[in-house]
Computed example of a mutant assay.
Amino acid sequence: MALPGKPPKGERTPVYMGLAATIIPPMTAMAKLHIRGHEHVPTTGAFVLSPNHYSEIDPLVMAIAIWKSGRVPRFMAKASLFKIPVFGRILTAAGQIPVERSGRATVGGAPMEAARTLVREELGVIIYPEGSLTRDPDLWPMRGKTGAVRMALEAGVPLIPAAHWGTQHLMPRYGKGIRPFPRKHIQILFGPPIDLSEFEGRTDQRSMTAATERLMAAIAELLGELRGETPPAQRHDPGQHGQAETGRFDG
């Protein structure tokens, strides 16, 4: 099935057109993206997309995959970045959602307002449920955090799992430089929306943990398909291995 191509004209703002023109050509020269399951990415309306994460270049690769699947990619970004001259204006113009250091999305000052903004502006937002690069020694998804599930439930939008494999050859986990030669092949697979119906109206930690595990299992299954391997039965838990967790939105 052919990819739909560029996002709808209404989503192709000057900021995003400029970013696409700047980023996609060099990335295409360094890596060929093999994208499957793009039909699971909603063509209109809001959604939350949750991929695996093991390389610092993952967000760039996933952003291009979403763009090529016919939508504009957006991320949760640290609120402090929005205060940087020029750069902050670009983030705002690109529809990124600010996140306080506590990890809570704060459009308008509250997580619920962030969810309302997501729906009102029909945004597609990428949230990494692991919160940082996986600590799993074999690059499988580790234990997830509840931010992605909470955002999808609060906004009442689809939660799409995704997996990719191959970015580690372009930039290794914890690597500081890109390895552009030879040209890499990166596999990307989007899955069907996670069924969260039984968790609607439930915000207790036990329910959110169960919903998050359902999401992580779906991501691991997609990754297993890409790798041709069976995911481990148990998810790596950094807390039990004495590993500090830092980084992205975790809710």
Rank of each mutant, 00 (worst) to 15 (best):
E130D: 11
L33C: 11
L33Q: 14
L3E: 11
R179V: 06
G144A: 08
K184S: 10
L133M: 10
E122N: 12
A115M: 05
Y128A: 11
F181G: 00
W165A: 14
Y16F: 13
I84K: 12
A77G: 13
R116G: 09
A233P: 03
F190V: 00
D204T: 10
G156I: 01
H34S: 11
K6A: 03
I219R: 00
I90L: 15
T117F: 13
A217M: 05
A211D: 03
R36N: 08
P42A: 15
A31E: 14
A218W: 06
T92K: 13
R173C: 12
R248V: 09
P51R: 03
P98E: 10
K145I: 06
V107H: 02
M142K: 08
M76L: 15
A155R: 00
I194F: 14
A2V: 04
L222Y: 12
P73Y: 11
I64Y: 13
E198P: 00
T134Y: 00
L226R: 12
I35K: 04
K32T: 15
A115Q: 09
L196G: 01
M112D: 10
F75L: 05
T44W: 13
D237C: 03
V149Y: 00
G109V: 08
A29S: 12
W140C: 03
L215A: 02
K68F: 01
G224C: 04
F249H: 04
M30W: 10
R150N: 04
V61M: 15
A115N: 05
M151K: 05
R179T: 05
I97R: 04
G166L: 04
A152K: 03
A94L: 14
L189E: 15
K6I: 10
G201Q: 09
P238L: 04
I97E: 06
M62N: 06
H40F: 03
A21S: 12
M27S: 07
S102K: 14
I24W: 14
V107D: 03
P14L: 14
A79L: 14
A233D: 06
A152P: 14
A155D: 09
